[in-house]
Design a protein around this nucleic acid. Structure first.
Lengths: 335, 335
DNA sequence: CTGTTAGCGCCTTCAT
DNA sequence: ATGAAGGCGCTAACAG
């Protein structure tokens, strides 16, 4: 009930406030009889301790914060699913902040977390270029764990995937099935994932001695813009015969642009990309995807964060965890 | 910085703690000069007031809670996107809780919010059958706004869609294009959305004098189960010639089951359903969907919640807001 | 305009 | 095994 506090319970039970507090928290120094009486009354009133008072007193919030660029993105919503599961098991609360790929917003949001609102931070950054807000977390002793989109310069645990390897494998297979001009589609902004995935792409080209044929298109995050860029790419004189998308949205955009231009996938253009769309197999044609274990990434990152929060030592391998992605080869890349 | 508090600032500035507090909050009774001095030092230290202390003192948390069944569901992630936007504008924080379609978990989570952790609650319920936890919110004077999945018996504002109408229109159009046996696919559990959508379905059948041909399949939330049920439905002696799915997942399941059984959509089976999949048009064949304005629902629900939190009177029409969905008729229903 | 004082509700010594 | 007292950091009421 709303107006119930320890004082009220104590008065009604003829006990001291401190006794009630201890009884409710199962302190060993309270008699079983008293505990029972206290708990009965607390139950009757549906009493919940005021979280602000106990957070203030104990200097901990039992809350973690999750900062992500987007939520309308299967990768992040699956990751949040995993995070929330672990948090709920631990009795923690989860604050969510969306930065909409805006690094100014990210900085503001993270600054807001500095004074005890959260006991830890899980973040997939918007840009890796500038990070005073993340350094502030270290000074404030707010534990951070990065997932997926990391900042190399900040010394915090990270949970990522073998994205370079998968990008390499995918592009190699495209080359081996006869593609000659693969365009790499990525997002603007200095992102760890873009760099790693491009590295894999370039490695595949290099291995075949085709590095000079590399094409990278940096697409704007704005919705219409990327489609304009793709349209231009696909109507140019030297049209690519394949695209490899670093992020889901660009693979989807490619499908839409091809439909608009009358280009056939895979006959005119092979399409593959990183994506956690569970329905990729229902596409026309089914879309070849690199699937990241988003749910596991969330669980793993949250698990590590809790170890930091609880002051436990991380095992040597836990500072950087690399989870395996897998390639779903489908008809969009069948030549 | 971590160890910065009002006391420290006050000491360094030779001011009273209360003066510092007021200066930082731009109280009109503080001189411009003092404000400037105070703010300069606060900035230097990157000072943020301890949120627990001010929440405790002011009896408000500047936080809202969002309780949803799932997040790996485009409807909910789009809605959360809208909610978060409004909350960020208002300077509020957003707590997320997932119930995984488990009403026990929903009850526990909502009970946890009773003592000031959040100033308001946005909820899409897991089941409409039992709701002591929601009544507790009213007693605790915790404002609630329902969105999408509502409980009729609880007197709280709600933001929903014209789902009965759209279900009716979709099914009517299926009938008019020649479907004779439309199966209605829904989820187990007593959900407002299931009832309303079924009402629309039944109304369409009734209007054509075909009510006796109605088939409703209540699918289990467990993943494999629903596909088993669909397989059974589609291999029976009187196979339906169309399915209308009350929720996205069942439309997707139908595609998968058809693929497995070698049934062709739409030739052997028309498929339509409620869905916020942005890629429905890329399906093979493109999926006919009833699209709900999920983002707007989130924004609208959050807006109303803030009016309640701020103690403003709701306009007459705001107690129940019905937003329009729209039907995207595509090839999955082309006979 | 600024300072003093008194809590918000809880938890934690320190006493008994 | 229980109680009394103090304080977490902040804000609001009341003085001056």
């Amino acid at each position: 009930m709303a107006g119930t506090d320890l004082k009220k319970l104590a008065r009604e039970l003829n006990l001291a406030v401190s006794t009630v507090s201890r009884a409710l928290r199962d302190s060993h120094e309270i008699s079983a009889a008293t505990k029972a009486r206290v708990k009965a009354l607390a139950d009757k009133y549906g009493f919940r301790p005021n979280p602000h008072a106990s957070s203030l007193r104990q200097a901990k919030s039992r809350t973690i914060a999750v900062v992500v660029p987007e939520i309308r993105n299967n990768f992040f919503s699956q990751a949040i699913n995993g995070i929330e599961l672990v948090a709920q098991e631990k009795g923690y609360h989860v604050l969510i902040y969306l930065t909409h790929e805006n690094s100014k917003q990210e900085r503001e949001v993270v600054q807001l977390l500095q004074n005890g609102r959260a006991d830890g931070l899980l973040i997939s950054v918007t840009e890796a270029g500038s990070y005073p807000h993340l350094e502030a977390c270290r000074e404030a002793e707010l534990p951070i764990v990065f997932f997926d989109r990391v900042v190399d310069e900040i010394d915090a645990p990270r949970v990522i995937t073998d994205e370079k390897l998968l990008a390499y494998q995918t592009c190699r297979r495209l080359l081996e099935s006869g593609c000659r001009r693969i365009a790499f589609l990525t997002m603007t902004g200095n992102l760890s994932i873009s760099r790693h995935r491009q590295d894999g792409y370039l490695q595949a080209l290099k291995e075949k001695g085709m590095e000079h044929l590399s094409i990278t298109v940096e697409c704007s995050a704005a919705d219409g813009d990327s489609r304009e860029q793709l349209k231009k790419l696909l109507s140019g004189p030297q049209r690519p015969d394949a695209v490899f998308a670093a992020v889901e949205k660009l693979a989807v955009d490619t499908y839409e642009v091809c439909a608009g231009m009358g280009l056939k996938i895979p006959e005119d253009l092979c399409v593959a990309g990183f994506s956690n769309l569970t329905v990729a197999s229902l596409f026309n044609p089914p879309l070849t995807t690199v699937v990241q274990p988003a749910y596991e990434i969330g669980k793993e990152a949250a698990g590590i964060l809790f170890r930091l929060i609880e002051g436990k030592k991380l095992l040597p391998g836990e500072h950087k965890i690399v989870l395996p992605s897998h390639l779903e080869w489908r008809r969009s890349t069948a030549r």
